[in-house]
């Protein structure tokens, strides 16, 4: 049985349909990345998976007792709120100190427990968010553009950390990412989203799919080429920026 799946999931936000008839399933231990243009419903899909958005129709099915570790897209802590890293990790449920320290270690920030959240750098902050998501030994990590605001080396280091976490803990990873080269390098499966699932499969299959090319073009600023070289290079440069498969 899948860890988490959706059945004909349709989401409506402020009267706008953001997702229609989405059927996805995440299996144990796999890394799945969701790509798609802005406003394609990526974050909404993740929010529906964690239960923060109610489906307009269709449903979300979670495996019995599924433990989810969620890393939100952004988290702004008001400067007026004093909070140590340790205190942050103990919200809303308190954990033994050893568990907190272990999670911080796994996320690569073992020495930050006593620091104020407001004093952390962008990269440290994201790792603390990751540590928080690791606290309950999740079956699946759900990350929403977790490297937003990080520079490229920072983002790369963060993704390496995630891979390490998966190796160590065996959890599945579902993430939204704009870093296409990372997606292609590190994912078992890619979901291309644009109001609906326009294509999915291994990175190679998705990169070759016309729907994907319509969305991201063929060059993708050279990032794809890093991993896919000339044999996938198309000389058809009609950059059709209409929706994925023309269904909308």
């Amino acid at each position: 049985m899948s860890l988490i799946s959706t059945q004909n999931l349709t989401l409506v936000l402020d009267g706008q349909t953001v997702l229609e008839n989405v059927n996805i399933a995440i299996e144990k231990g796999e890394i799945v990345t969701i790509v798609g243009p802005n406003g394609s419903g990526k974050s909404s899909l993740l929010r529906a998976l964690i239960g923060a958005l109610k489906p307009a129709s269709g449903s979300v099915t979670r495996a019995d007792g599924l433990r989810i570790g969620y890393v939100p897209q952004k988290l702004q802590i008001d400067a007026t709120l004093p909070l140590t890293v340790q205190g942050f990790l103990n919200l809303p449920h308190r954990h033994p100190r050893a568990v907190v320290n272990d999670a911080l270690h796994k996320a690569g920030v073992g020495d930050l427990a006593k620091r104020q959240m407001a004093d952390l750098s962008g990269g440290q902050f994201q790792r603390v968010l990751l540590a928080r998501a690791l606290l309950n030994a999740p079956d699946i990590l759900i990350l929403d553009e977790a490297t937003q605001g990080l520079d490229q080396p920072g983002a790369a280091a963060f993704y390496r950390q995630i891979e390490e976490v998966r190796r160590e803990m065996g959890c599945a990873v579902l993430m939204v990412s704009h870093d296409l080269h990372v997606v292609m390098a590190a994912s078992d499966r890619v979901l291309c989203l644009n109001g609906h699932v326009c294509c999915e499969g291994t990175p190679e299959i998705v990169a070759d799919a016309p729907e994907y090319r319509a969305l991201f073009g063929t060059g993708t600023q050279g990032a794809l080429a890093l991993y896919r070289h000339e044999h996938t290079h198309s000389h058809d440069h009609t950059h059709d920026h209409s929706n994925c498969d023309g269904a909308h």
Binding site: I50, L81, L91, P92
Partner: peptide, 19 residues
């Protein structure tokens, strides 16, 4: 207290924690 603090930080994070 703990739940209120969590919801203050980020509603989605609170929801993911079952609040």
């Amino acid at each position: 207290w703990q739940a209120l603090l969590s919801a203050t930080l980020n509603p989605d994070l609170a929801t993911a924690s079952g609040l």
